[in-house]
Design a protein around this nucleic acid. Sequence first.
DNA 1: TTCTTGACTGTACGTTCATTCAATGATATT
DNA 2: AATATCATTGAATGAACGTACAGTCAAGAA
Lengths: 207, 207
Amino acid sequence: MTDTAATTRAEQKLITRQRLLETTIDIIADEGFAGVTMAKVAERAGLSRGICNFHFQTKEQLMLEAFRGLYIEHEQTWRKILTDDARSAAERLSALIETLLTPPIADHKKVAVWLAFWGVTPHRQTYLNVCTEVDCQYEDAITELLHELAGGQEKLHGLPLRSIAVSLTALIDGTLLQYLIAPGRLSPNEAIRSCLTYLGSFFPQFR
Amino acid sequence: MTDTAATTRAEQKLITRQRLLETTIDIIADEGFAGVTMAKVAERAGLSRGICNFHFQTKEQLMLEAFRGLYIEHEQTWRKILTDDARSAAERLSALIETLLTPPIADHKKVAVWLAFWGVTPHRQTYLNVCTEVDCQYEDAITELLHELAGGQEKLHGLPLRSIAVSLTALIDGTLLQYLIAPGRLSPNEAIRSCLTYLGSFFPQFR
DNA sequence: TTCTTGACTGTACGTTCATTCAATGATATT
DNA sequence: AATATCATTGAATGAACGTACAGTCAAGAA
């Protein structure tokens, strides 16, 4: 089962491992968190039953790694946008909002996977740790942009810039949640406009 | 086991049924969605193993009824606030936001239960139906208030009032989500102020 | 008081699932 | 070419769970 001419065993192992993680996400997307079975992951990956326990000691480990992978992928997305030197701070924020609220990021299946994990997060400290780790950096990055926009002000409308950043995150994540549990009642364009209006109440640049 | 002097069998049955539903919610709050077991619900309710299948044909039924109960309880909360004739439209909206974003509504366990159900919703049409049923009325009620505030305008900042209502819901629900997955990084007071600022960008009454 | 109904009990069954482990065969090393 | 290493296999194991059902006992009717 050689993919191409040259794949060493170590490489092949990593490939298999990665494949199992992706398959796990696929199953969550299709059938939800409870649909994940070690055997099902292996079968859908085209491998044998025991393979999951070989690469990941426990199911818990497999799920956790899959969750972490999701965050890492997401981190690459926002980091790319927020550090784009060709754009102004305001442009970067707008681009971020637009990207996060339209496909392929705001895809039904993808958001369903996030939601499935979030639903479990309050009861597993390990999951919460993953969230905290990445989200803090995310908020740092946004807060820094807000600083550039605020022109020296530490607070706006009595709110610290960091709180505005968290609230913006809440609005974006909440919108994705609405996409799922209230499908079709808010279009991406409207959602984006709404977010920008929110920012506009703090920063005139967005009016 | 007579609660008071007079409980007929029919009443007792309803009490037991209700007790099972509440116990189900308690277990979700403590251990998450996956922690729910028919036997565990019965035991924690102080009843025997088979009782859940007696009152609810399947586990699915039990969970669905528990979810519906959650929405009904929630509906009573917002309806009480939104139809308070003693207050103006703006005051009602403020009161709603304040109520939803502070304890006892914005309680860690309660929100965790909502999130647990939402996490499953995209994969179960029956759950989604429950959401849609109540949420539409919720949005209707808020949209109507916004109409009163808008003074005849159908759109503000290019957004239909209904979309503003959905976005406000997104902001509130997203904030609750942040309470869980980013604990302590946004205080209730800041969250409320943030929501009011958002409304202020559409309606000067809130500035 | 006697009979009947039905809420509730608790055992038993069949299924599903995570995990283990001895066997296998491909790859790397000598 | 022979051997050692190691990723992978797939059957086996045991635990956990939902559901079914025959039995129990007290409440209400006659």
